[in-house]
Structure formats: C-alpha cells, structure tokens
Amino acid sequence: MVNEGDYVVIFNSIHRVMEAEKLLKERRLSILLIPAPRALAADCGLAIRYGEEVRQEVEEVLTQAGLMPRESFRKQGEAFIKIEGE
C-alpha cells in the first residue's frame, strides 16, 4: 500500500491519528489511513500515507493543529527512510 516516494507518518495514539485523518480529509487532501507497515513498529499500528504533491500542505495542517507525528518516513526502494522523529 506504500509506493516509492510516499510518506508514512506515525502518531503515538489512536486518537491522534484519527483526529489527524479527520482534519486532513476535511481539507480534501489526498491521504490514506493505513496499517503501519510492519517494518515501522508503532504502538497504535496505524499510519497516514501521502504523496509528495500534498506533503507541504499536510505537514502545515498537522503542525497548526499541534498534531505532529511521532515519526515520519519516506519509502525508498524496499526501505523506509526516517525523516523526522525520536
């Protein structure tokens, strides 16, 4: 479900990821709530996927709402490269 170059962001609670999805959907941004890829062990098991074309807008909306993800990754080949996070 994650294609080359896609971004995958993980939150530290189910409530935060659901709130983030709701907010981004209200803005009609092309994002998808997906099960967190197994390689990225996440507590809540869910992640939000989006493409480069909406990246800036997605990140602005999340930052303004105080819903920064715990970790952000980008798919490159078979690997997920960490962009931000602990």
């Binding site: 479900m1 659901m18 709530l33 997906i34 099960p35 197994r38 098991g45 869910l46």
Partner: peptide
C-alpha cells in the same frame, strides 16, 4: 461505529500482507 469502521479498513488493507 467509528472504531469499527477503522478496524475494518485496517483489516482489509492488512490482508495484502
């Protein structure tokens, strides 16, 4: 309901793995 819908989506996508 909200949780149930989320879990169903999660389930169907996970079937791919």
């Amino acid at each position: 309901e909200e949780l149930g819908r989320l879990l169903m989506r999660n389930f169907i996508i996970t079937l791919l793995d």
